[in-house]
C-alpha cells in the first residue's frame, strides 16, 4: 500500500473585516487505500480540510500548504483547469445534504450521466446504461424510475444514494465524504454506510470520512484524526479510540449519553485554552508495501 494523498502543513485562512480567522492551522496527514475518519466539533476545521484538498474553498478563503501530493502531482501548483481534471475523476466529494447539493431542476439520472460523460468519452446511451448500473449498485430498487425523477421527489436516503452514485461513477481513487449521513435517520444511515463501505472496499478506494459522530467513525473507519481548533490534536487507530489519552477526546467521548452505561449526569467538556496552542500531530503514515 502506498500513500495516495499526502497533505503537508495545510493552512486555511479567512480574512474578515476585523481579523484573520484561521480555520485550519498547519495540519499534515496521509491517505492510502484505507478509511480515514476526521472528527471534531463544529468549527474545528474538518470540513475545510476536505474542501481545501479539492480547491473548493471560496473567496475570501486562502489555502496554503507545503504540498498536497496526489500520486506524485502537487495539487497546490495545478491550474484550475488541471485541478478540474482531478476533481471528480480522481478525487470526489459527497456533501452533507443531498437537498442542497443536487440541481433541483435537472432529473437525477441526467446529473449522474453528466458526471460520467465529463470524464469519459461516451455516447448518451452508454452513459445511461452506466448510470442505471450505478443506481443499482447503490441499491436503489427501481433504477429506471429514479433515473427520471427530480431531486425533490426523492427522500433523504435516496437522495444521498444518488449523490454517492454520482460521485462514484467516474471511479475515483479517493472519496471525501463530508458528514454523508448526518441528515439521515439512523436506520437509513446504516444502509447508506453499508453501501459506501462495500463500494469503497470492492474498488480499493481511499476514503476520508468527515463526521462529528465519534462512535460512528470508530466503528466505520480504520484510522481517526481528531481535530480541535484547526489542528489535529490526536490520531489513533479506530479500534483504539476508547483508549485514547487526550482530555479533549476523552471529554467528547464521555459527554455522549449511552444506552448501555446510563449515568445520572453527563460529564461536561471543559475546554483548556492550552489545547489550542498544542502543536498539530503529524498524521502522515509510512506505508509499507506489504
Amino acid at each position: 500500500m502506498t500513500a495516495l494523498l499526502t497533505v503537508e502543513d495545510l493552512w486555511v485562512r479567512f480574512q474578515t473585516r476585523n481579523r484573520l480567522v484561521e480555520a485550519v492551522r498547519g495540519i499534515s496527514f496521509s491517505v492510502g487505500r484505507e478509511r480515514i475518519g476526521i472528527v471534531g466539533e463544529s468549527g474545528s476545521g474538518k470540513s475545510m480540510t476536505g474542501r481545501a484538498i479539492l480547491g473548493l474553498v471560496q473567496h475570501p478563503g486562502i489555502v496554503q500548504a507545503k504540498r498536497i501530493d496526489f500520486k506524485g502531482r502537487d495539487l497546490t501548483s495545478l491550474s484550475d483547469r488541471d485541478l478540474r481534471a482531478i476533481r471528480g475523476q480522481h478525487i470526489s466529494m459527497i456533501m452533507q445534504d443531498p437537498k442542497y447539493s443536487l440541481n433541483p431542476v435537472i432529473k437525477v439520472g441526467h446529473q449522474i450521466a453528466e458526471s460520467y460523460r465529463l470524464h469519459h468519452k461516451s455516447s448518451r446511451t452508454e452513459a445511461k446504461i452506466k448510470t442505471l448500473e450505478m443506481l443499482e449498485e447503490v441499491q436503489i430498487p427501481d433504477p429506471e424510475r429514479v433515473f427520471n425523477t427530480y431531486p425533490h421527489e426523492l427522500s433523504g436516503g435516496m437522495g444521498q444514494r444518488v449523490m454517492i452514485a454520482m460521485m462514484l461513477i467516474p471511479n475515483p481513487e479517493i472519496l471525501i465524504a463530508d458528514e454523508p449521513t448526518s441528515a439521515l435517520d439512523v436506520t437509513v444511515q446504516k444502509r447508506v454506510l453499508e453501501i459506501m463501505d462495500k463500494l469503497v472496499r470492492d474498488r480499493g478506494m481511499g476514503l476520508i470520512f468527515i463526521s462529528h459522530d465519534l462512535n460512528l467513525v470508530s466503528s466505520f473507519c480504520d484510522r481517526i484524526l481528531i481535530m480541535y481548533a484547526g489542528r489535529i490534536i490526536e490520531t489513533c487507530l479506530a479500534k483504539d479510540l476508547h483508549n485514547t489519552s487526550h482530555p479533549y477526546t476523552r471529554g467528547l467521548l464521555n459527554s455522549l449519553p449511552s444506552l448501555q452505561n446510563p449515568s445520572e449526569k453527563l460529564p461536561i467538556l471543559n475546554r483548556d485554552p492550552r489545547w489550542k496552542e498544542e502543536p498539530s500531530v503529524n498524521a502522515i503514515r509510512e506505508y509499507s508495501n506489504a
Binding site: 466539533e41 462529528h212 459527554s255 455522549l256 449519553p257 467538556l269
Partner: peptide, 14 residues
C-alpha cells in the same frame, strides 16, 4: 448541537 454542548443542555434540562 455538538455532542459536548448537547451534554450541557441535557444536564440543564434534568
Amino acid at each position: 448541537l455538538d455532542v459536548s454542548v448537547q451534554a450541557e443542555i441535557l444536564n440543564l434540562l434534568n
